[in-house]
Structure formats: C-alpha cells, structure tokens
C-alpha cells in the first residue's frame, strides 16, 4: 500500500512518542535510549543491566499488547527467513561496531546535534537504500 496523508499524521504522532520515551529514559536513567546499546548492555551485564532489561521487556510486552489490539500495525518480514537471519547478524555486528542504530544515532544523537550520529545516520540510510536497490535488481522486491 502506498503512502497516504494518515501515514504522515500517524508517523508524526508515533515519532513524538518515540522522542518522549527516549527523553523519559534520559530523565530517569541518564542514558541514551539506543536500543542496540541497551541490548548489548544487558548481554554485557553492565552495571545498570536491570533497568536495561526492564526497558527491553517493556518494549517487547507493549509490542505484543498493541499487536493484540491493532494487528494491522504489525507485518511479517518481506524477505525470506534466511535473508532475515543474515540481516539480523549484520544489524547486530554493525550496531556494535558503529556504536548505535536508528534510535541511538538516528533519534537521540541527531536530536543532540552530534556530528558522529548525523554521519552514522546518513551512512546507514545510504547503505540501506543500496541493499534495497540490490534486492530489487536481484528480483526479490517488487
């Protein structure tokens, strides 16, 4: 389905909630709400790993609840499962090497006017677009 005006309004509303949630995490725990960083902090048993785990549990639980109420807000992947697995590996390695993902760099870092985060965001958007273009050429997406 293509883009409609309601998508823009819902996008802004959802984005505002994401920004608020990230600022709330800063207010309560004093840290950047970067999902990849929070996950790896749990894996590393960082000092505040309990709070990090609680954030992740909240993320997963709320996702499950919203999906029960509004199933259409969730879709399965477009790609095949082996491609999704490869994608997950790349996301895991890349976000650790690059110290962040769409939330840490894209939202929080960019919102803090961090040059590093702006550079990272432009980079992952560019290579993301290249990956989609490559998939299209390979005949995967239509």
């Amino acid at each position: 389905m293509t883009f409609q005006a309601t998508d823009a309004a819902l996008g802004l509303a959802g984005g505002a909630l994401i920004g608020l949630a990230s600022a709330l995490y800063l207010a309560t725990h004093g840290r950047i709400a970067g999902i990849s960083g929070i996950v790896s902090g749990v894996l590393d048993r960082a000092g505040d790993w309990r709070a990090r785990l609680a954030f992740i549990v909240g993320l997963v639980a709320a996702g499950a609840l919203v999906a029960l109420a509004k199933p259409l807000l969730f879709e399965g992947p477009v790609a095949s499962l082996p491609v999704v697995a490869a994608a997950g590996l790349l996301v895991g390695m890349g976000t650790r090497l690059g110290s962040g993902c769409t939330s840490g760099h894209g939202v929080c870092g960019t919102g803090r006017l961090s040059l590093r985060s702006v550079a990272a965001t432009l980079t992952f958007m560019a290579t993301g677009a290249l990956a989609v273009a490559a998939t299209r050429i390979a005949g995967g997406v239509q």
């Binding site: 790609a79 491609v83 999704v84 490869a86 994608a87 997950g88 590996l89 790349l90 996301v91 895991g92 390695m93 890349g94 976000t95 650790r96 090497l97 690059g98 110290s99 962040g100 993902c101 769409t102 760099h105 550079a119 990272a120 965001t121 980079t123 992952f124 958007m125 560019a126 290579t127 993301g128 677009a129 290249l130 990956a131 989609v132 998939t135």
Partner: peptide, 11 residues
C-alpha cells in the same frame, strides 16, 4: 559499523 548496519536494515 553504520554501513554494515544499514545493509542489514535494508535486507
């Protein structure tokens, strides 16, 4: 790192 992440995101 960002480049690798982006490829995974796009796939």
């Amino acid at each position: 790192g960002a480049a690798l992440f982006g490829v995974g995101w796009g796939l």
